[in-house]
Computed example of a mutant assay.
Amino acid sequence: MKSRPTAVELKNISREETLAVLPIAAVEQHGPHLPTGTDAIICTAVAEQVEEQLKEKIVLLPTLWLGASQHHLRWGATLTSRVENYETLLCEICESLLKDGFRRVMILNGHGGNIGPMQISLRRLQVDYPNCQLMAASYWSIAEEEIASVMEGDCKTVGHACEAETSLIMHLRPELIRSAKVENFDDYAPDLIDGVYICRDMFQRTSAGATGRPDLASKEKGARMFSQIVKRVSDVIGHLSEEPLSHYP
C-alpha cells in the first residue's frame, strides 16, 4: 500500500493479511567521509523499494531515524536513545499496530546497535500477542550472500562506514560523500574473539569511527548491491507475509 495513506484507507485494509513494516535506523557519526544519516538513508531506500515490489502485501511505516547508538557517543555527532528506552519505544510503536488489529508486524533494521533491542522488544510483545506474526531483521542479514558476492575487502558484510555502506551511499546519494576523506579503515578491533563477545564502544574499536575498506567502494558496486538487496528482501518478506497465521495459535 502507498506509504502515505489516510486513516480511512488504513481502516479498510486487511489486518489479517497485511504485513506492517517498520524501518528503523540511526543518526550517528560515520567516520570522516559519510553523512550522519547514512543508516536512515540506506534503510529507507531499501524499504521504499521493497514497498514498490510488494504493494498489495505490506503497509510501510515512516522510518524511525533514532537508534540505540550510545556506543558512538564518544565520537560525537551522534543522537541516541538509551538501550532500555529504545526497547520500550519499539514495543510501543509495534503495540500501537497490534492494538489496531494488525497481526503481522516486521521491524526492518539498518543499524547494528538496534539488533539486540529490536529482538528483545519482540520477545516482550510476544508474551501478550502469541497469536501474531512478529518478525525483525537487518537488511544485510537477509541479503548476506548477495552483499558478500559484491565485496572485495576481507569484511564481507555491512560494518560501519565501510565498503558496503560507502558503496550504497555512492549509489543513493553521491553528493554526500567526502571523497577526499575515504581511506582504508581496516584497523578496527573485532567484537567477537574465539566466540566471546567483547563489549567495547566504537571509540575503543576504531581509529577514525569507521571500519573496513571504504577505499574499495564504488558507485557501480552500490548499484549492484542495492538491486540485489531489494530483490532478496522483497522475496523473503513476500514469502513470510504469506505464512498462515494458524502457525501462531
Rank of each mutant, 00 (worst) to 15 (best):
A180F: 03
G113A: 05
I177W: 10
S141G: 00
T206A: 01
A45Y: 02
W140F: 09
K221E: 07
L98N: 04
D191K: 11
T18H: 02
A210S: 13
C162K: 04
G113I: 09
S138E: 04
E87F: 02
M135N: 05
Q228I: 00
A208G: 00
A210Q: 00
V158K: 08
L176H: 05
L176V: 02
W65V: 13
G195C: 05
N114M: 06
K2H: 15
E243H: 12
H33I: 14
P174Q: 13
I147K: 09
A148V: 01
E165R: 10
N12Y: 05
P35I: 12
M151K: 08
L66H: 07
W65R: 01
G209F: 07
T44A: 12
P190H: 06
E56Y: 01
T18W: 00
V182I: 15
P174Y: 12
T206M: 00
A40K: 10
E242W: 01
W140S: 09
T36F: 00
A47R: 10
N114A: 05
D100E: 15
E183K: 14
A136Y: 03
H72W: 11
I41V: 12
I24Q: 10
E16T: 14
D128K: 15
N184C: 08
D100T: 06
H33M: 12
G31S: 01
H111D: 03
T63A: 12
A47M: 06
S81C: 14
Q133H: 14
E243P: 00
E163A: 09
E152I: 04
G37S: 14
A210H: 01
E48Q: 15
L97P: 11
Q204D: 15
S149R: 12
L19R: 05
P23T: 09
R74G: 00
